[in-house]
Amino acid sequence: MIEITNNVIDSQAVLEAVQDTRAGAVVLFLGTTRSITGDRGTDSLDYECYESMATRQLESLESAARERWDVISIQITHRLGHLLPGEASVAIAVSSAHRVNAFECGQWLIDTLKEDVPIWKKENWSDGTHEWVHPGIEG
């Protein structure tokens, strides 16, 4: 299942969404707001999304992952809006009969999400400046 939300991510609910008695492994990844990048401090992040496309891309990621790995259930939840350090912006949970599939599938999902799903973050640096984060583009 795919969810894009403005609410705080409930990691327990994400885990429960993939739990299944056939599963021998459940892997949960949380992407959390870092307060330090290199030598710069972050006060907060703002996430923005092209929602219709992001939903479609997340759905196609889920189907591609299911074709590639033998997994039981996948839950991807992405939060938008204003996040403080320590808060989770994304949660990915995967359940499978054996752990290798859940680990590999979860890693592939987060890596691919960060390339192909149109969700962007703005760093609100501690020095008062703001900057959209786009690999390859100077802020």
């Binding site: 092209y50 496309m53 960060k114 390339e115 192909d116 149109p118 969700i119 973050k121 786009h134 690999p135």
Partner: peptide
């Protein structure tokens, strides 16, 4: 839509 590079994130 114009899609700027997505946030990325170091592994």
């Amino acid at each position: 839509a114009i899609i700027p590079p997505v946030s990325g994130g170091a592994l």
